[in-house]
Design a protein around this nucleic acid. Structure first.
Length: 433
RNA sequence: GUCCCCGUCGUCCAGAGGCCUAGGACGUGGCCCUUUCAAGGCUAAAACACGGGUUCGAAUCCCGUCGGGGACGCCA
């Protein structure tokens, strides 16, 4: 039997990292075993659900690279995939339970009649779990407004959609016996369950708004790339068993297994996400980086796939953590400095004669062979001739080029900038001083 | 309060009775490289919650304690 897994969010308007990780585990397992990954929207709470809110979740999944085989927008053999469109199914199921004496009416609602005894199931991450039915109250399955509650709709849909594995958050463990009871009442065998630990904030409290971003799309805005988020989330609560940490989606698919999921909660560690982001960013091709750096400013600059752009990216790649770092670091390659950092001037160019030194360098650079080695040699020879430190010219030139004290390696940057630009900027700074 | 889950470095993950003087990664400190900032290389500090068992031997099994988390809705 090929596995069929599903991610069944309620439409809250965005995909939070916890949900994303759950979706990811389900997806990974389905892809690993050649099964199906189904997306189902649990919008039975009329008061809180709105159709537009679904797009936020779909966008989040798509951004992460999680595609679905059945669900919204594409349909499938078990359509519809919105619970609000399956209400008749639930009503019929509740009626059947009523007819067989396994449920009873209570004030207009229908409650499930919990039998005495114990209810047990084997969890793929926690092992055997058993509940005494006396701790399970006769729960409502159909509200008095004839809308189903979560327990009923999940079980009916998972049966209808032939779901074989339910991978969801730890917080559902105590709901599971109720659902197992429903499977039995319908004469069905429950799927296999895997309850994955929750994601916590740095204070070990459940992740929430006050911890900062909780929506995956929020991370995109901050410059994180999906490859990194995917890798990071996959390793939160799960390990490959090896010492490696950096993986592509395909590598993760090859290695994923439910049994490797750990039982304890996991803290969302942004510093580690940053590291993953840098590592994956460095591995992105120039084309991919350029494609993801959309924006009017980049278009105006003409950053593209030419060799000059490639040279810039080669210099910048090891220096950026987020995609959003790039535009600022790219600016010196396209625009003369609009201003000079006051601290930089003060620290590096406060001595008298600096302007003269820079003019001398400009003179030298007018003729010199345009190669890294030659530019450095010329600069150091000039420094010797004038008995000043090479650092003065190096830092001065850096400020002339960027307006700041920080930049990629000076000489490699000068090569990319080109002689005309370098001479012009040297003149401008000398004049400014 | 009741029920359930969990408890290895600050954080994430290894470890499924001897291979553990507990390993890797992030972060942190130091060193190297160096024209700045990064990146990179090397290196250091850093953990088996506690108490009882079982066993020749326990981070690994059992019990208890403590600690953390979750669930107890006509929310999902």
């Amino acid at each position: 039997m090929t596995p069929r897994l599903r991610f069944a969010p309620s439409p809250t308007g965005y995909l939070h990292v916890g949900g994303a990780r759950t979706a990811l585990f389900n997806w990974l397992y389905a892809r690993r075993h050649g099964g199906a990954f189904i997306l189902r929207i649990e919008d039975t709470d009329v008061a809180r659900s709105q159709a537009e809110m679904v797009t936020g979740i779909l966008d989040g999944l798509r951004w992460l690279g999680i595609d679905w085989d059945e669900g919204p927008e594409i349909g499938g053999p078990h359509a519809p995939y919105f619970q609000s469109e399956r209400l008749e199914r639930y009503r019929a199921a509740a009626r059947a339970l009523l007819d067989s004496g396994q449920a009873f009416e209570d004030g207009g609602a229908i409650r499930f009649k919990v039998p005495p005894g114990k209810t047990a199931f084997t969890d793929r991450v926690h092992g055997p779990i058993e509940f005494d039915n006396e701790h399970i109250e006769s729960f409502v399955i159909l509200r008095s407004d004839t809308h189903p509650t979560y327990h009923l709709s999940v079980v009916v849909d998972d049966i209808d959609m032939a779901i074989t594995h339910v991978v969801r958050g730890d917080d559902h463990i105590s709901n599971t016996p109720k659902q197992v009871l429903l499977y039995h009442a319908f004469g069905k065998t429950p799927p296999s369950f895997a309850h994955v630990p929750l994601i916590m904030g740095p204070d070990k409290q459940r992740l929430s708004k006050r911890h900062g971003a909780t929506s995956v799309m929020e991370y995109e805005k901050q410059g994180y790339i999906p490859e990194a988020m995917f890798n990071f989330l996959a390793l939160l609560g799960w390990g490959t068993g090896s010492n490696d940490e950096l993986f592509t989606r395909d590598e993760l698919i090859q290695q994923f297994n439910l049994d490797g999921i750990s039982g304890g909660n996991a803290v969302f560690n942004v510093e580690k996400l940053d590291w993953f982001n840098h590592q994956h960013l460095v591995r992105l091709s120039d084309d991919e980086i350029v494609a993801r750096l959309r924006g009017a400013r980049l278009d105006a600059w003409g950053l593209g796939t030419d060799t000059r752009s490639a040279s810039m990216l080669a210099l910048l790649r090891p220096r950026c953590k987020k995609l959003t770092d790039l535009p600022d670091q790219l600016r010196p390659f396209f625009e003369d400095p609009a201003a000079y950092d006051a601290d930089a001037i003060k620290k590096q160019l406060s001595l008298p004669g600096c302007a003269d030194h820079l003019r001398a360098l400009r003179g030298s650079y007018e003729q010199v062979e345009w190669s890294e080695a030659a530019l450095e040699r010329a600069l150091r020879e000039l420094a010797d001739a004038r008995t000043i430190k090479a650092g003065l010219l190096i830092h001065g030139t850096r400020i002339a080029m960027t307006g700041r004290m920080v930049s990629p390696g000076l000489f490699e940057m000068l090569i990319v900038l080109g002689r005309d630009t370098v001479l012009r900027r040297l003149d401008r700074l000398a004049a400014f001083l």
